[in-house]
Computed example of a mutant assay.
Amino acid sequence: MKIYKFLQGGKPRFGVLEEPDTIRAMKASPFEGSIDLDDETWPLSSLVLLPPTVAHPRIFGVGLNYKSHILETGRALPEIPSIFMKPDTALIGHGESIVYPSGSTIVHYETELVAVIGRKARNVAREDALDYVLGYACGNDVSERTIQRKEMTLGLMTVGKAFDTFAPIGPCIETSVDPAALRMRGRLNGTIVQDCQTSDLLFGVDALVAYLSQAITLMPGDLIMTGTPGGVGPLQPGDSFEIDIEGVGVLRNDVIGENA
């Protein structure tokens, strides 16, 4: 099942995809309990899509989590997940623009699978962890490398990951895929630049949910960006980047200059 969030009558609504271009309204948010459908329908192509989560989610990122990406950096495999966070002001949806910061010279795309938490989770066992995940979305962990590299000499990743618009997520939540068996591709201006299987993840979604929930109560709508494979590279104003995850969908965002 694909769950979309969109604007209708000036208000955010949730709905499910019933046909290739038909969205049926949900009576309430999927993060409030059961998924009950309403009678209203709209063409998907007519809707302005929003990030498919709550209004102000916590966004957890994971560095160095694909073996291919770790190998291209020359680092050793980490013993625990390398966790950082993005502010909710970085969050944008499908079709919104990534803003290239004024004064920046190195901004990279990062194709990622995003796990969307569906219910409150604390001290979750790994074998039960996926029961707390509502579904999966496409995500782009956009990164300002000049700042990030300076931060990493201090042992942190904060501002370089946190610019406004640096967390595109969407276009929907897919509830019925195996997060460990998906093909994931990133396309820059139509050319494939990242192509991998999520089986290459060092710490899978189950391990990440269990690890985070040891210390943090995960809440409905929280987002876990699970890491990027090899092939990261630069974005420039005027570029278009697509993230295509098998069974989930395609997230597309253009890049504009900050003063455009």
Rank of each mutant, 00 (worst) to 15 (best):
Y4T: 11
R187P: 00
Y109A: 10
N253G: 06
T146S: 15
L134P: 15
V107S: 13
Y100Q: 08
R24I: 11
D131L: 10
I245A: 07
A76V: 04
D206I: 04
I70F: 00
E246F: 07
W42M: 05
L251Q: 12
G155M: 03
K161E: 09
G135Q: 07
D36K: 09
T198K: 02
P43G: 02
T53A: 09
L208T: 10
E127G: 06
R126H: 05
G204D: 12
S102L: 13
D88F: 11
K67E: 11
M26S: 12
K11M: 14
V142L: 05
P87T: 04
L235T: 07
D195A: 06
P78A: 01
I169Q: 02
M152F: 07
D38H: 09
S199D: 11
T111K: 00
G186C: 11
V250R: 10
S102Y: 13
L154H: 08
I169K: 00
G135W: 00
D88I: 04
L64A: 12
F163M: 06
T158W: 04
T228E: 04
V209M: 06
E32V: 13
L71V: 15
V205C: 08
D36S: 12
T217P: 14
D21P: 02
H94T: 03
Q214I: 00
D88Y: 13
P234F: 00
G221L: 01
T22Q: 07
G190Y: 01
V255M: 05
L77Y: 03
I245K: 13
V232N: 02
R122Q: 07
L64P: 15
G249N: 13
R58E: 05
A115H: 03
L17C: 10
H94F: 02
P87L: 00
L47Y: 03
L71N: 12
T165A: 09
E19K: 14
A90Y: 01
H56M: 11
I256V: 14
G257H: 02
R75H: 06
F14V: 08
F14R: 15
T191W: 02
Q8Y: 13
A210T: 12
M225Q: 10
V232G: 01
K161S: 05
F84S: 05
K11D: 14
K161R: 08
K5R: 15
L223R: 07
N189Q: 04
Y109L: 11
V177I: 07
L113N: 10
P51I: 06
D88M: 10
G247M: 09
A162P: 09
E242C: 12
T217L: 01
N140R: 00
P237S: 03
G61C: 12
D206A: 14
A167S: 15
T153K: 14
C196H: 08
E72H: 11
T105E: 08
H69Y: 08
P81I: 03
L37C: 09
V124G: 14
F14D: 14
V193K: 15
M152N: 07
T105I: 05
M184P: 07
V142S: 09
V205E: 08
R187M: 07
A28G: 05
T226K: 02
I98C: 10
G33Y: 14
L182A: 15
R126F: 01
P52W: 00
L130M: 09
L134M: 13
A162T: 11
S68Q: 04
T226F: 00
A28K: 15
S213L: 01
Y136E: 03
T191N: 03
A162G: 15
P43W: 00
